[in-house]
């Protein structure tokens, strides 16, 4: 057992910055990028070259309602034309008041979620108070920007962030949704948004179904319908699979924080 090195005592409250300094091999972004370029997987497979080798995860929707936000993600992951998994989960709690959902390369997405969860927890422990919701959204943008090199090589991850704004000074609605692009652009959405290969169809569906002051039940129903519509037209998206009893992951974030809606409840909708 060795003493803590000077790097452990330098200033800063970001876990990712600490990793980059002290244990870059654990971060993996940069090494993954160089590995892929050296083995030549970057070309040849169209818009998403990584899609031929690594599982891709696909449609996430998020929408606000009267008392909070709903985020839902389908359960399908694909490798090229094949289904890699019917039960993958793409919507996660980032912390007690925030949900993050990811479309893109599954392996990188899951690592990004772990890092992001830890980044928020690390900040909260060091500072003694959680980041503001806007701060969380900006932090996610910065992480994406640091992965731009990977995204340009075809291994893109595009998240959605939904959260409950606990700031006492907040005057607008507290349930807020942020969408992103691969370059780290962060955009706050007023009502609803979607990401992933089926996003176009899901957005079209939500456009008709969205009610700004609707109930949680109505919002969940709209989210499920949007995912079903996306699954109808996009091979990468799985809808509600009643036969196998596989339901999308549906998260609700309101004043009480993050909660996942049970499958039994989704079955009744």
């Amino acid at each position: 057992m060795s003493a803590l090195t000077p790097g452990y005592f330098s200033p800063g409250n970001s876990f990712i910055d600490f990793l980059r300094r002290e244990a870059p091999e654990q971060l993996g972004f940069d090494s993954a990028a160089s590995h892929i370029s050296s083995t030549g997987l970057t070309g040849g497979a169209g818009a998403v070259p990584g899609g031929q080798v690594a599982p891709q995860a696909t449609t996430i929707v998020a929408l606000t309602y009267r008392d909070g936000v709903i985020m839902a993600g389908d359960r399908r992951a694909t490798i090229g034309q094949q289904i890699a998994s019917r039960e993958i989960e793409k919507v996660f709690p980032a912390d007690a008041y925030t949900a993050v959902g990811l479309a893109g390369v599954a392996g990188l997405a899951i690592q990004l979620v772990r890092l992001y969860q830890l980044e928020l927890e690390h900040y909260e422990k060091i500072e003694g108070a959680p980041l503001s919701l806007q701060g969380k959204a900006n932090r996610l943008a910065a992480i994406l920007r640091s992965q731009l090199d990977l995204a340009l090589r075809g291994l893109a991850v595009v998240p959605l962030l939904a959260g409950w704004d606990t700031s006492p000074d907040r005057t607008g609605p507290r349930g807020r949704v942020f969408s992103y692009d691969v370059t780290g652009g962060s955009y706050e959405e007023r009502h609803f948004t979607a990401t992933g290969s089926g996003a176009v169809f899901a957005k079209g569906s939500l456009k008709k179904l969205y009610r700004p002051a609707g109930s949680a039940r109505g919002a969940i129903r709209a989210a499920l319908t949007a995912l079903n519509d996306a699954a109808d037209d996009d091979t990468g998206t799985g809808g509600v699979d009643r036969e196998r009893a596989i339901y999308p992951v549906v998260a609700k974030i309101d004043a009480r924080g993050y909660s996942r809606i049970a499958d039994a409840e989704l079955a009744k909708l």
Partner: peptide
């Protein structure tokens, strides 16, 4: 304290 949080978070992540 801060070094301890970093130590624990790194271990838990690795």
């Amino acid at each position: 304290r801060v070094a301890g949080i970093r130590y624990a978070d790194l271990r838990g992540y690795a």
